[in-house]
Computed example of a mutant assay.
Amino acid sequence: MRVTFEGSGAGSGPLSWGQLDIWLKMTAVGHAMAMGGVRPLPPGTTLDDVAGELRFLMSRYECLRTRLVPDGDGPPRQVVHGSGSIELEVLDHVDAGTVEARFRDAPSTTPTSGRSGWPSSATAGCAATSSWSCPTSSWTAPARCS
């Protein structure tokens, strides 16, 4: 399911010193250091509810709309997008453990290889117990994005 979003603060620029530090560490170890988790949703939560929350988060937080682009031989530059869309992965007829495993085992071998093309991804598991996971890579988070 594609979820579109719009937010303020579009532009590009060099990495902050904190972003550069974490990017260098991730490059050295060969994988992204994503943060996130899985949480149960209240009974009655619909897929539209989950999509609405994802839309809000992507619109509100510039760090979730920031991509790193190559910049010659040096570190990448950050580009904050004012709009776009992100895939909300929907797993039908699964339990919370399946969604947890999907989050835990999601491949992210480099700082720029996220499943969604964004530094975040989301999965909704639809069953008796629904869960939503939204791992967010801190390496793209500007200092003002908290």
Rank of each mutant, 00 (worst) to 15 (best):
R2D: 13
V3L: 08
T4A: 10
T4L: 06
G7H: 03
G9Q: 07
A10M: 08
S12T: 14
P14D: 01
Q19N: 08
Q19Y: 07
L20R: 04
L20C: 09
K25I: 15
K25T: 12
M26D: 07
H31S: 15
H31T: 15
A32T: 14
M33D: 10
M33W: 03
M33P: 03
G36F: 07
G37Y: 06
G37S: 14
V38N: 07
V38I: 14
R39Q: 10
P42D: 14
P42S: 13
P43V: 02
G44F: 06
T45E: 10
L47Q: 15
D48P: 03
D49R: 10
V50N: 05
G52P: 06
F56L: 15
F56A: 13
L57S: 04
S59H: 06
E62I: 06
C63T: 12
L64S: 08
L64P: 01
T66E: 04
T66L: 03
L68A: 10
V69Q: 01
V69C: 01
V69H: 00
P70C: 05
D71P: 00
D71N: 07
G74C: 04
P75Y: 03
R77T: 02
R77P: 03
Q78K: 05
V79M: 00
H81D: 07
H81M: 00
G82E: 13
G82V: 11
S83I: 07
G84L: 02
G84K: 04
G84P: 00
G84D: 04
S85G: 04
S85E: 15
I86T: 09
E89N: 05
E89W: 07
L91I: 12
D92G: 04
D92L: 08
V94Y: 01
D95N: 09
D95T: 10
G97Q: 12
T98M: 09
V99M: 01
A101V: 09
R102V: 11
F103A: 02
A106R: 14
P107C: 09
T109Y: 04
T110C: 11
P111H: 09
P111R: 09
T112P: 02
S113R: 11
G114W: 14
W118V: 02
W118M: 04
P119H: 11
A122Q: 03
T123I: 15
A124M: 13
C126M: 15
A128T: 14
S130F: 00
S131I: 06
S131T: 14
S131A: 12
S131P: 00
W132I: 15
W132L: 15
S133F: 01
S133L: 02
S133T: 14
C134K: 00
P135I: 15
P135W: 12
T136A: 13
T136R: 08
S137A: 12
T140N: 12
A141V: 13
A141N: 11
A143I: 13
R144V: 11
R144D: 13
R144F: 14
C145T: 08
C145A: 13
